[in-house]
């Protein structure tokens, strides 16, 4: 072009920082996130394979480890199922109906997020512990809740209680009820409306909520730690088993089990990022709460 710029000073956009500031911030973000977030993750795998691949798999094949893995999977499955049912019901209630105390109900649903995990586990000890009347009665009838899987499930359900509801409520509120009314007016029953109209509209949000709920359920430590009693091979979940192995100074084994949990975290992050990228417009979490 004959009229090519004779400009000597580069154009400074009114809404951009100088290049030096920009590179400083990008550099800082890289450095901070790599040192502060990525390095701990790398440490887990380096330590896990410190004794070689054989030692790694030997640690995982240990019966106590296998039983911890199995217990974690069972506990998380039950907790996620229950909280998903609850999340869908609560979201339907809040999004489709007007009633007094709705805002208060939403606050109550978020409540477990602001309770320390240790306290979340402790409340079940207060109810079912041996020191209570109920606890004594349960022991007399040989029903175990504390120091058994029921206690682990209860504590996990408490801690992961809000995840699905929290994702679905804003999503269903944003979507409104027009499609449901249309289905009902065409003669669909309530259940048909839910399965054929509502569920397809919320499926990605639901999956997103389940994903986060599951990650927390499998990884919960504080709450299950006080109700478990940490009986190896019986009431030890994976995170608790990590602690037991660590206290026993079995570093390779501790980090080997930890590496499985870290893989779970990576898988969760990957799926989450994929959902945000592919179905971002259908996720309430991205719209800014």
């Amino acid at each position: 072009m004959s009229t090519m710029a004779t400009t000597h000073r580069p154009f400074r956009s009114a809404t951009a920082e100088p290049l030096s500031v920009r590179w400083l911030l990008i550099g800082f973000t890289f450095a901070f996130l790599i040192v502060f977030l990525l390095l701990p993750l790398i440490v887990v795998f380096v330590q896990a394979f410190a004794g070689g691949i054989k030692a790694y798999f030997a640690a995982l094949a240990d019966p106590d480890s296998l039983s911890a893995i199995w217990l974690t999977l069972k506990t998380a499955a039950i907790a996620v199922l229950l909280n998903t049912l609850f999340g869908v019901a609560a979201a339907w209630l809040v999004a489709k109906f007007e009633f007094r105390g709705k805002d208060f109900l939403i606050t109550l649903i978020d409540l477990p997020f602001s309770v320390s995990p240790v306290i979340s586990g402790m409340v079940f000890v207060l109810i079912f512990g041996a020191q209570t009347w109920l606890g004594g009665w349960l022991i007399d009838h040989d029903i175990r809740i504390i120091f058994a899987q029921t206690g682990l499930v209860l504590a996990t359900v408490f801690v992961t209680f809000p995840f699905v509801a929290r994702e679905l409520i804003p999503l269903m509120q944003a979507q409104g009820s027009d499609e449901e009314y249309a289905a009902l007016s065409l003669g669909a029953s309530g259940w048909q409306t839910f399965w054929l109209v509502t569920l397809p509209n919320i499926r990605w949000g639901l999956l997103y909520g389940i994903l986060l709920c599951n990650a927390r359920a499998m990884g919960e430590f504080g709450a299950v730690s006080v109700v478990s009693g940490k009986i190896r091979g019986a009431s030890n979940t994976m995170p608790l088993h990590v602690e037991v192995l660590y206290q026993d100074n079995k570093m390779v084994a501790a980090f080997a089990v930890a590496s499985l949990l870290a893989l779970l975290a990576l898988l969760t992050l990957g799926l989450k990022t994929f959902l945000e990228w592919r179905h971002g417009d259908e996720l309430a979490a991205l719209r800014g709460r």
Partner: peptide, 10 residues
């Protein structure tokens, strides 16, 4: 106004 970069001219 100087809000938009230009490719040439004065």
């Amino acid at each position: 106004a100087g809000l938009e970069p230009i490719n040439g001219g004065r």
